[in-house]
Design a protein around this nucleic acid. Structure first.
Lengths: 202, 202
DNA sequence: TTGAAAGTTCTCTAAAAGTTCTCTATATTT
DNA sequence: AAATATAGAGAACTTTTAGAGAACTTTCAA
């Protein structure tokens, strides 16, 4: 986590490189932030380099760069062939421009985790008991998204989310045998939103 | 269970981080709750950290964070943390002896491929349009399995399989608006059986 | 090649923010 | 009535953040 002035320094560097296609001098950063000592700026710059937000070529004039993003190629990538669409019609209709799916790309991402589903409250959304759901951590959701919500710090459930804009929220099960539940907003804390689902039949 | 003011503090922190993308100062919380002493606020904050509702970077200014979804994900290995079961009950019930799922193990195997689902014929089995299904190639199936069947070398469909033992088979859609179809066995060729299913909400 | 310009490393200062106390008061429970 | 949990004030202290500036080393261009 960056302090205020570290953040300022980072913002300045990004803007500068954007405009000039080269890194700023320490003294330019200092002037830009209203700091008189380049030693101070150098301290911030080193912190940013440490956090790998920038790259620093030691000693070099204007040796501040944005990090070179080298795409890492995974040798044994979890890639499976995607043959086509299945339904009535031709035996199997090919899908143009997509002939494989990378499972990692499909499901994985920062802040994501899995939960096993218990109960039938989301059955009409195609989420069955013992399915695995992929959740991305966050604290807010848009209306209509399916979320993991913690009510009163006690009960975690998977439900469709609706903010009623009057200090209450509604958690909607996708099962016509169950009723939507209305809670005061402060009782409901969002743990994450649903981004994927998977099921094994073995 | 949290006391009233602890709950207030937690709500304030969540809202603050939501709006500002950074943690609040103790004095900002104090002002927000109408408390004059930052010592008091610090006591509440420590309780929340203790309950692991927030994370506290000791000493740091604005060092209040929402809990980092701890399990750090290695982008290169198709392994994701499996946190537990979700439903009513405890916040999240841990699953003993299984805390991660390897996507490759979960889905991949020799002779397996993917198909994208078109149509709603299997909707009551939790298989929706645009879902991806994992199929394992084979030429026979047991009753009750969901298979990819090719009828008259022309029409490939995903249906539940039943061998009637009288020279006919029944292909059963999981949608009460559609009718099961009976074919003479020689007209139906099994392409593979359903072993997995996945869906992305992004 | 050489000197100005730029980067690096330091020490020092001060304000801001977090931490740890003690003290008080009011409910609520036993 | 005593014990306990909750709620708040505020003082004293430590650590972090922010900045100034001096001394030094390295880079780079005339």
């Amino acid at each position: 986590m960056l302090s205020r002035r570290e953040q300022d320094t980072y913002d300045f560097i990004c803007n500068y490189i954007n405009e000039h296609q080269q890194g700023p001098l320490l003294e330019e950063i200092a002037a830009g932030l209203g700091i008189k000592s380049k030693g101070v700026v150098h301290r911030y710059v080193k912190t940013l380099a440490n956090a790998e937000l920038i790259e620093l070529i030691s000693g070099r004039h204007r040796g501040i760069q944005l990090p070179s993003s080298e795409p890492v190629i995974d040798e044994n990538a979890p890639v499976m062939p995607l043959l086509g669409r299945i339904a009535a019609g031709m035996p199997i209709e090919a899908i143009p421009d997509q002939n494989e799916i990378n499972l990692a790309d499909f499901f994985m991402g920062p802040g994501r985790f899995l939960l096993k589903v218990q109960g039938e409250s989301m059955i009409e959304a195609g989420i069955l008991p013992d399915d695995i759901v992929v959740i991305e951590s966050c604290v807010t959701a848009r209306n209509g998204e399916i979320i993991v919500a913690l009510v009163d710090q006690q009960d975690a459930t998977l439900k469709r989310f609706k903010n009623n804009q009057d200090g209450t929220v509604t958690l909607i099960p996708e099962n016509h045998e169950m009723q939507p539940m209305i809670f005061e907003s402060h009782r409901v804390h969002i743990q994450g939103v649903l981004v994927g689902q998977m099921r094994s039949y073995c």
